[in-house]
Amino acid sequence: AWRRQTGGRTWWILGGGVVFPLVVLALLFVASTGVLRAVAGGREDAALTIEVTGHQFWWDVVYDPGGLAIRDANEVVMPVGVPVRIVLKSEDVIHSFWVPKVAGKMDMIPGRVNETVMTATEAGRFRGQCAEFCGLSHPLMAFEMVAVPPDHFRAFLEDLQGDAADVAGPAARGREVFLEAGCAACHAVRGVAEGARLGPDLTRVGGRAALGAGMWPMNEGSLAGWIADVQDMKPGANMPSYAHLSGPDLRALAQWLGSLR
């Protein structure tokens, strides 16, 4: 009775609503599983581990080739063509690590450790950004992934291991300001003040392309502006604005920080 009543058009619903999607979905499923295997594979042959920890609103980066924990921040340097194991953690709220041009995102969750493997296929600078809403300055939590040839990467690591270079002239005054103003309570500069981890490691801060977690171009002017005005530039950040520093001190500090690379 059913068939007579509906004529021959039941096939339309069954074909269009059931068969067609099932066929298309099956094909899509096979294809996307293939891609997923390719994306997720290579975990075992990753030779290098980089550990990134999310903070409100910056990134703590530790390079770990063979047990050496070398700390840096807000920039992830990677060798081209080598699968890198990226270990993701969070110190406060949930963040998400995302470099659209290199790989999909992975969340950083307090109390948990997530892992992903990324391979940069070409050299270049790629913008990354926190993809999980993490508070007031979530839009200002970016970074750069810098993919370099493997030999450059080795040189970069060697360079990174050293202490901050000694300086003379006005910049040396900047180092005093750094210590006097209490910056070392939160920031480490290897060879000057070590151990503090509440803020980004500044050992090579002047060598980064950007300031404020991938947001502003790095130069002495913006460094001075940043220190005096953090809370305006990045509301909700844990660092207070150091507007009370005198002009010359501020300039010296910025000059010194800019020289760290």
Partner: peptide, 30 residues
């Protein structure tokens, strides 16, 4: 998907998620 669920289970969730297309498709085609 991005919170770090086991990779092997992701593919099955993915397949299951698309299954909703069938009852939706039936309604739309009707």
């Amino acid at each position: 998907f991005a919170t770090g669920l086991p990779i092997l289970s992701l593919t099955l969730f993915s397949a299951a998620s698309t299954m909703v297309a069938v009852p939706t498709g039936v309604q739309i085609f009707s």
